[in-house]
C-alpha cells in the first residue's frame, strides 16, 4: 500500500486518505497562448516509466496539497515536499540521482 508523509501535518498517510492530483510542476498557460502550449499544458503529460513528480492532496487528513517523488516502475517513494515551490528540492534530486544513476533529470 502506498504511504506518503504529508509535509503539511507530518502524518504518514496511507492511500485511502490521499487523493492523487497528477503531474507536478506544470507550467500553466492561459488566454493568448498558442494551440501547442495549450495542448501541452492540458494533455501532454510526461507519463514516465520511472521517476515521477506528482501532486497529492491529504484529502481525509489536513486537506492540504503537497508534492511527492515516486517511481512508477517500482512504486518506491523517494520523498514528499510542500507544494509552495516551482521545482523539487535539491536534496531530493540528489537522493534520486544516487538511487537512479541513469535518470535523465526532472525536466
Amino acid at each position: 500500500m502506498l504511504i506518503l508523509e504529508c509535509p503539511c501535518c507530518g502524518v504518514k498517510a496511507e492511500e485511502t486518505e490521499l487523493a492523487p492530483g497528477g503531474e507536478a510542476h506544470l507550467k500553466r498557460f492561459g488566454p493568448g497562448s498558442s494551440d501547442e502550449e495549450f495542448e501541452a499544458y492540458m494533455f501532454a503529460r510526461k507519463n514516465p516509466k520511472g521517476v515521477h513528480f506528482e501532486r497529492w492532496r491529504h484529502a481525509y487528513g489536513c486537506g492540504k496539497w503537497f508534492l511527492a517523488a515516486r517511481c512508477t516502475a517500482t512504486l518506491e517513494v523517494f520523498g514528499t515536499y510542500p507544494a509552495q515551490t516551482t521545482e523539487p528540492p535539491a536534496e531530493l534530486i540528489a537522493k534520486i540521482q544516487a538511487k537512479r544513476p541513469d535518470w535523465k533529470g526532472w525536466k
Binding site: M1, L2, E15, T16, A19, P20, E23, N47, P48, K49, H52, E54, R70, T72, A73, T74, L75
Partner: peptide, 14 residues
C-alpha cells in the same frame, strides 16, 4: 482504475 501513474501491473488494494 487507480488514480495515479503506474507501470507495475499491480493495483491498489482498496
Amino acid at each position: 482504475t487507480d488514480g495515479f501513474n503506474n507501470y507495475t501491473q499491480r493495483g491498489s488494494f482498496q
